[in-house]
Design a binder for these strands. Structure first.
Length: 297
DNA sequence: GACACGTGGCA
DNA sequence: TTGCCAAGTGT
C-alpha cells in the first residue's frame, strides 16, 4: 500500500495554530478550570448537537452534577430529563452509565488513558481521543466531521470528506499530527475550530482561511463535490419522531404517566407501540403497573 | 458497512 | 419552504 503524494501537513501547523490563537471561541469547556469531567460532559453533548444548543444544558448539568460521583448517585431518568431537548437521549443514559463506571472502576476520576476512556459507555474513538487530548493534553488524532472536512479539502483536495469516517481519514490525521505532545493537542482543537468556523460544510469562508494558499482543494480550483449522493435523513413520520414525542411527555411529567397520555402523542397505534417498546428496550422508559410509565428510576 | 438514533437552525 | 447539517456511537 503506497501513499499518494500529499501537501506537507507540517506546513499547515504554524498558520493553523496562529489562527487558533487569535480566533478561538471562548467556550466554557475550554476554560483552564474546566477539568476532565467538564470536557467529557461537553463531548457527550456535542455528539451531533450544535454548540449553541449545548451551552445552556451544559451549564445546568455541571452545576447540578459537578463531579462524576454526583451524577452516578442519581437515577438514570434524571439524566434523561436534564438532557432536555438536546436530542439522541441515549447519550444521557450512556453518560450516566459512564459516570457510574468511573466511580466503580476509576475512583471517581475520569481516566486519562485512551484505552480506559474507550471502554466507557458512549465513548467511541473520537470521544476517547478528544478527552485524552483536550483534558489531558495528550497526542492523539482527534477525528471528527470538522477535521475530516478540513483534511479532505486542505490535504486531499476534495470538496467534502467521505460520507462515513474511514481508516484512511484516521491515518491521514495521524500522519498530520505534530510530534510534540502539547503542540499536537493544540493542533487537534485548532483544526476542529477551523472546520467549525471557516472551513464549513456548505459555504466555506475561504477568504478568512489561514491555509487557503496551501489548500489542495482551493489550488485545484475548488471543484464541486462529485461523490455519491448523501443520504438525507428524513425525520417527519419516523419512529424517531414518535420516540421524541413520547419522551417529551415523560420528561415533562415528574412522576408516572398513564398510557392515555402517551397515546395522545401519535395517532398510529402500531407505530406508537413500536416506538414505546423501543424506548423501554433502550432503557429510556420504565414500564410500571396499571399501564403507567416513567423515566427510569 | 448500513442503519437507527432527536432536535432545531439556517440558506 | 425544505433539505442539509450539527464535536458520533452501537449494533
Amino acid at each position: 500500500m503506497s501513499d499518494s503524494p500529499l501537501p506537507l501537513a507540517s506546513a499547515l501547523h504554524a498558520p493553523v495554530l496562529d489562527w487558533y490563537a487569535g480566533n478561538a471561541r471562548t467556550l466554557p469547556w475550554r476554560e483552564p478550570d474546566a477539568g476532565p469531567w467538564a470536557v467529557m460532559v461537553s463531548e457527550f453533548m456535542l455528539q451531533q448537537t450544535p454548540v449553541n444548543r449545548v451551552l445552556p444544558a451544559y451549564a445546568t448539568w455541571l452545576r447540578r452534577w459537578p463531579k462524576p460521583v454526583d451524577l452516578a448517585a442519581e437515577a438514570p431518568g434524571e439524566a434523561v430529563r436534564a438532557w432536555d431537548r438536546l436530542g439522541y437521549p441515549r447519550r444521557a443514559l450512556r453518560l450516566h452509565a459512564a459516570a457510574q463506571a468511573i466511580v466503580a472502576e476509576h475512583g471517581g476520576k475520569v481516566p486519562d488513558s485512551h484505552e480506559a476512556l474507550l471502554a466507557l459507555p458512549g465513548v467511541g474513538t473520537y470521544t476517547a481521543a478528544a478527552i485524552a487530548s483536550f483534558a489531558f493534553g495528550q497526542r492523539h488524532a482527534v477525528v471528527d466531521t470538522n477535521v475530516r472536512r478540513v483534511f479532505a479539502r486542505a490535504l486531499t483536495g476534495t470538496a467534502q470528506p467521505t460520507i462515513s469516517p474511514t481508516a484512511a481519514d484516521q491515518r491521514l490525521a495521524v500522519s498530520a499530527l505534530p510530534e510534540d505532545e502539547a503542540t499536537a493537542a493544540r493542533w487537534a482543537v485548532a483544526t476542529m475550530e477551523l472546520g467549525a468556523l471557516v472551513c464549513t460544510a456548505r459555504t466555506p469562508r475561504c477568504a478568512d482561511c489561514p491555509i487557503r494558499a496551501r489548500c489542495a482543494w482551493v489550488l485545484a480550483g475548488s471543484p464541486p463535490y462529485d461523490g455519491p449522493p448523501r443520504r438525507g435523513q428524513t425525520y417527519e413520520g419516523t419512529d424517531r419522531q414518535v420516540r421524541g414525542r413520547l419522551l417529551a411527555v415523560l420528561r415533562a411529567a415528574h412522576g408516572p404517566v398513564a398510557k392515555p397520555s402517551l397515546d395522545a402523542c401519535w395517532p398510529d397505534d402500531v407505530q406508537r407501540e413500536r416506538a414505546l417498546d423501543g424506548l423501554v428496550a433502550d432503557g429510556l422508559v420504565e414500564p410500571l403497573d396499571n399501564h403507567r410509565f416513567r423515566l427510569p428510576a
